[in-house]
Amino acid sequence: MLHHNIRARATPITTQIVAIDVLAPDVRRLVLQLPPNHPFRYRAGQFVSLVLPDGSRRSLSPACAPRVDDCIVFHVQRQPNGVLSNLVFRDFVLGDSVAIEGPFGNCVLGHRSNPTVMLATGTGIAPLMAMLEENFACGTPRPITLFWGGRTLRDLYAAPTLESWARQRLNFRFIPVLSSTGIYVQDAAAAIFPDFFGIDIYACGSPGMVESARAKLLTFPGASPDRFYADAFRPSGAAAAPSSPSIVIHHADANIEVPIGASLLAALTNAGVAINSVCGGQASCGTCRVKLAPEWHDHFPPPNKTERRLLAYLESPVPTHRLACQITLEPRHAGLAFSLDP
């Protein structure tokens, strides 16, 4: 799990509706197409704000990991007199424009392979499906057990997809839970897991489920509030501003707010700065090389052997070169100045 404190994009981006499909009688699949050459980037598990015609905003989590076709998929639940619900179920037509802001939220899957338990009700399955897609694409061998609750099987509209993933993946289990039988997702998880040592728990869906799951599962041996994630998955409401400690750094005449504790590479990527990285932060590809301003050279620990060897190998090395993936941002780095692709 990475705790990115990802700055919201200030300027809304105009997308176009390219599909509205029926997932279930009360659920629609809304697909938005990003414009060409857009600067929008998100991680599975984050959420975005849709700016509605009346100026109000509704937050939704993408149901897919970032796609090569630049479409974003959302699951929209029908809500009585819901503004977004009315638009999606009644008013929107293909080709309509919808502005989005974000992304928001700081809970995304990292590269660790901790066993993971996911709990969802209703359209709370959407961000978890995005995270699953991302997890499978990365090949991280994280064992994941997903409990998805509905009143009846008809409510579990994505069950065929999840069952297919479970058949294909040795490390993924999908357990449908029907509340009509008197069992809820947190009960099912409690029945299967005797303890939660080293296990990350994600809960997404109705606030009642999230709070019940929190109250129940955190009494189990090994369960930790630090490993119980639910904050990024609010189904609606205004997007929150980041709240984790951050600093401001300088690049290309711009000030960039970045979270303390993140790598410089992750912070820049999530701030929308066009920095390359191919190897996933392994100090292998060298594409995230940056050139520190001379006065900042001594503000960082010297590179370890792996970074030092690669920096020496890359073309035209200078002493102020570092790999952004190997720099961890600390409070004392406020004001850091550097250039890309030096």
Partner: peptide, 23 residues
Amino acid sequence: MLKGWHDVYVRFGTNTLKTFGAP
């Protein structure tokens, strides 16, 4: 050939079970 599009993996014994990218 030090520059790589992915990391270098030499895995021994039980680590040969590890999938790509897993520490």
